[in-house]
Simulated assay, not measured.
Amino acid sequence: MTGKEAPMTAPAIIVTMSDSVPGRQMGDVLGIARGSVVRARFFGRDFVAGLRNLVGGEVNEYTDLMAQTREQAMARMIAHAAELGADAVVTFRFSTSTITEGAAEILAYGTAVKLT
């Protein structure tokens, strides 16, 4: 999030990396739920990260940026699952790809299902 956006809220949807929800029966498969964010690096953050590269260690600026981006992609996936009428998303995964030099996409996806 850029700090100017309101946090996304969505109904309580179960999200799991497994192919089932423990203690629940799956009903209809509603399709693929997905949420995507393309994030570009910021010069100020790059400058600080470049200085950190000189001394080594974790680049906290990028760690924080990617954590925020994953959360936003997951929130978008959950919102999409809600639009599909899902109670849960199973087989949840993240995928990352480079779009251009300095920009990457984080994709959150899984199978939207109704529970019985």
Rank of each mutant, 00 (worst) to 15 (best):
S95T: 01
F92M: 09
G23R: 07
M1T: 09
R70P: 03
K4F: 12
I106E: 11
G23F: 06
V48C: 01
T9Q: 03
A108W: 04
I14M: 10
A79T: 03
Y109M: 09
D46T: 05
R39H: 12
S95V: 00
F47S: 00
E5F: 03
G31D: 08
A82V: 01
F92C: 01
R24L: 10
A73K: 13
E71Y: 11
R39S: 14
A40Y: 10
I32M: 12
M8Q: 04
Y62D: 14
A49S: 13
A104W: 14
T100G: 02
G57D: 09
M17I: 06
A73T: 11
V21Q: 09
V113T: 14
L107R: 07
T9I: 02
V48F: 02
I106Q: 12
A67S: 13
G56N: 03
T96H: 06
V48W: 00
G57L: 07
G110Q: 05
Q25G: 05
A49W: 07
A49E: 13
R76E: 15
A33F: 05
A10E: 00
V29N: 15
R39C: 14
G110M: 04
D28A: 15
E105L: 09
T63K: 11
A75Q: 11
G27N: 13
F42C: 13
V37M: 14
I32S: 04
S97N: 02
Y109T: 04
N60F: 10
M77D: 09
N60I: 14
P22Q: 09
R34P: 01
I78N: 04
D87F: 11
V21D: 09
V38T: 15
S36I: 08
V89L: 04
M17L: 06
I99C: 07
A10C: 03
E61Y: 08
K114C: 12
N60A: 15
A104C: 13
G31I: 09
M8L: 14
E71A: 15
E71M: 08
S18K: 08
V37H: 14
S95D: 12
A73G: 09
A103Q: 13
I78C: 03
K4W: 08
T100S: 11
T98G: 05
R70Q: 13
L107F: 02
L54T: 02
V15I: 11
T63V: 12
S36T: 10
A82D: 08
V29D: 15
G27C: 14
A88N: 06
V90C: 08
I14C: 03
A73V: 12
A86H: 15
T2P: 01
R52I: 03
G50W: 01
I13P: 02
A12C: 00
V38H: 06
T63Q: 08
A112P: 13
Q25H: 03
G31T: 12
F43N: 05
F47L: 04
D28K: 15
I99K: 15
I32P: 00
S36Q: 13
I14N: 06
G85I: 15
A33P: 13
F47C: 00
P7W: 02
P11H: 02
V37L: 09
M17R: 14
G57Y: 05
E58M: 12
N53S: 04
F94W: 07
S95R: 07
T69P: 15
P7Q: 06
E5A: 07
T116L: 10
A112K: 11
I106W: 14
A6M: 06
Y62F: 15
T100W: 08
N53V: 00
A86Q: 12
L84V: 07
T63S: 14
G110A: 07
T9A: 01
